[in-house]
């Protein structure tokens, strides 16, 4: 009996893989945050899903539970099953490079990593997130009532700290324009030191760090630590948005965290879904070429999410100023941190 069942199931399996192989397939390997991290893994996956809907391709993902899984997960996607493999996260840089070198015919793309020199079969996707975070910092400085803002990160790595750089510079720019004295706790762009939870998964840490910043007077906080920020959001939810507002990162968090949508002042968008979709399109059209895609305000790769429930609370003048700054950054007349 078992034999029959097994052969039957094997047949189903074989049939399944045959159909899968016939269509164009995009595969994603997540880092340890998981596919539903309300952060970059999820956003990148949205790019795959959008492509599935628009181009009719197949998509699948593998979740990594540990760093040792990166290479193994990449290996298990080899053998022609995937037309393009998308890896997510700075920490997967080494594993992706190793795998790409061993399998030169396989197309890869990595979110949040730029190789120098570039690798012929890998497209790095990086983002000028500081541009969007600059706008968020300016906005927050204009909205704060205590004159204190806060931010913290997951791990002190460039894709994280670039948010914090932009945020601080944006707030400083507000100070110099309006002659105010808004301070940002949690990050010092000069020394490149600040507050870090040391992980991308502890919601408890997100809550505790936000609590600390709130106790120090911050009324708007930008957590840059993937799902850790959900912990901060739940604190804001309990305290009420008059006491504490959160600025989301990566995706529009009113969409990824709908239960607490009202606590998000805005989100600093890192449109990984857009760049991932662009890479998939290129792979489908045979225009895929190793190198770098940089998401900017100009090409829409980064941006600021709508204010949603704060739409009326944000003064029209502030909105106008932000639009002006955005234009200035795009035309190059304003440089961040300059």
């Amino acid at each position: 009996m078992t034999f029959l069942t097994k052969t039957g199931l094997a047949a189903v399996l074989v049939a399944g893989s045959v159909t899968a192989a016939s269509a164009f397939t995009a595969c994603q390997v997540t880092d340890t945050g998981g596919i539903d991290d309300a952060g970059f893994n999820q956003t990148a996956w949205k790019g795959v899903q959008d492509s599935m809907a628009e181009y009719g391709i197949e998509g699948r993902f593998l979740e990594s539970q540990a760093e040792a899984d990166y290479e193994a997960n990449l290996n298990s996607l080899l053998g022609g099953a995937c037309d393009v493999i998308i890896t997510v996260g700075f920490l997967m840089g080494d594993a992706t490079a190793t795998s790409a070198a061993a399998n030169p015919d396989q197309k890869y793309s990595i979110v949040d990593y730029a190789y120098d020199p570039t690798i012929p079969n890998v497209v790095g996707q990086v983002y000028a997130t500081d541009q969007a975070a600059f706008l968020a910092g300016y906005l927050a400085a204009g909205m704060t009532e205590t004159g204190v803002l806060g931010t913290f990160g997951g791990i002190n790595i460039p894709p994280v700290t670039v948010f914090m750089d932009g945020f601080v510079h944006g707030a400083n720019h507000y100070n110099s324009v309006h002659g105010t004295d808004v301070t940002v706790l949690g990050w010092n762009p000069e020394s490149q030191e600040g507050l870090f939870t040391g992980n991308f998964d502890s919601l408890d840490d997100g809550r505790a760090f936000a609590q600390n910043l709130y106790d120090e007077g911050a009324d708007i906080i930008m957590p840059v630590a993937g799902p850790v920020g959900l912990g901060s959001a739940s604190l804001a939810n309990e305290l009420g948005t008059d006491e504490l507002k959160i600025i989301g990162v990566d995706a529009d968090q009113t969409q990824t965290d709908p239960d607490r949508a009202h606590v998000y002042l805005t989100s600093v968008l890192k449109r990984m879904d857009a760049t991932v979709q662009a890479v998939i399109k290129a792979a489908m059209d045979d225009t895929f070429e190793g190198g770098l895609i940089v998401g900017t305000l100009e090409n829409g790769g980064v941006g600021l999410a709508p204010f949603h429930s704060f739409e009326d609370a944000v003064p029209a003048e502030l909105k106008a100023e932000i639009e002006e700054i955005k234009a200035a950054i795009i035309d190059g007349s304003l440089t961040i941190g300059g």
């Binding site: 540990a66 760093e67 040792a68 290479e71 920490l91 080494d94 791990i155 040391g198 992980n199």
Partner: peptide, 9 residues
């Protein structure tokens, strides 16, 4: 396997 050490390896 890993070739390096990182937090939580």
């Amino acid at each position: 396997v890993l070739g390096r050490a990182s937090p939580g390896f």
